[in-house]
Amino acid sequence: MKRSHWLLILYLLLIIFPVLAAALWGSRMGNSFLWEMGRNCALTGFMLLALQAILAARFQVLERSFGFDILIRFHKHMGVLAVVLLIGHPLLLALGGGGMGLLVNLDLPWYVMAAKLGLLLLIVNVLLSIFSERIRLKFERWRLTHDLLAPAIIVLGFFHSRRVGSDLRIPIVRWYWTVMFVLVLAVFIYHRWIRPWQLSRRPWKVTGVKKEVDRVWTVTLEPPKGQRVFDYLPGQFQFITFHRGRGLPVEEHHWTISSSPARRESVASTIKELGDFTATIGQTKPGDTATVHAPFGRFSYRLRPGERELVFVAGGIGITPLIGMLRHMRDTRADLSVLLIYANRGEGDIAFRQEIDRIAEGEHPRLSVVHLLSKPGDGWSGERGRLDRDRLKRYCQDRFQGRTFYLCGPPPMIDATVTALKELGVADGRIETELFTFL
């Protein structure tokens, strides 16, 4: 069995342990089924919440097995599941014999009111996470709220359960509960405070800021003296916090590494001006410092060494992991065939155009390129329109078997391309995508 399977089993065991232990060693007091369900919802829901801190803490062992984007999606799904269970907890207790007063009365003991507050904060936290984009909540603001609410919810839930949870009178459950509580708080403090502090003590230096095309910049970073660039796979990404002074914002963001790992003196990310923070990226100057946490991601041709024929589909700035892979193939003289389908709005938006042409002139990799423009100018003689099933068929010359597809770009484009590829008979296992947004 793969390590990811073992980790998933461990995850389930950690979550269900309190319920199992309570069922085995707890008292049978003749409660109703709904009451017992309500209690189990709390035991499971709280464990799910506690483990959230570990899922999101960027641990390499988890990241290597699943990929960071997948972990964060899973974290989100589990957050929703925890809310459902923890809303079910008071409802089922009330229906199972506790009475409606449990839900509506406000003159309840502090440990019940603490749980109500915790549940309210949890609902707010999950709603903000799901709808952050729709209500245009800025990433940094959302993250600060998330970082304040999450530990508060855990603390409120912990004290509520220690005071009122009858199953926590079973010694093994009580111990387990306390150990998990201390552990997740420690993980949270490490992830949000200790590790950033450690990283900030060894800052990287900006050595280059280059404009690629309109609103797209490549920032090159050099490791601290005496330190080499970390080992990474082409296509992986890094978390960067720029410290630029001059009143420019200090925020941590993640960007794909667009440089080739075959060149070890520096590392580069190509960044598009998309939001409030990235709008300032062109104001970064050589000599500025940055904190770097890397590498992350499972989107790399190096993870599938047996593949010989690859199709890259890039939408706009989604070219970054793919150019990293093409550069690596060039530098290592890889014996591979690659078809690059590169979609952009206009001709002026095609980043790395000359470099891609030069790679296509060589033999390593054997690269052919299709530029597809949705809004080309009058002088454009190449492909025009949006990538669809018919175009895919034509560009791939109706040959889909034995090829592996790497897609990176805006989510609607990726979703449409995945659907089209499946209709054309490409197996799930041969489609790799990078989930572009994490929230």
Binding site: V19, G26, N40, D428
Partner: peptide, 30 residues
């Protein structure tokens, strides 16, 4: 594809958790 695997995993975890909530509750009311 990893996204499909994620959805499958999420479903598996949800089913496992629901089972582990219902069965112990049934055991305890016996």
């Amino acid at each position: 594809m990893r996204r499909t695997k994620l959805n499958r995993t999420t479903r598996l975890v949800i089913v496992a958790i629901v089972v582990m909530i219902v069965i112990p509750a049934l055991l305890r009311i016996r």
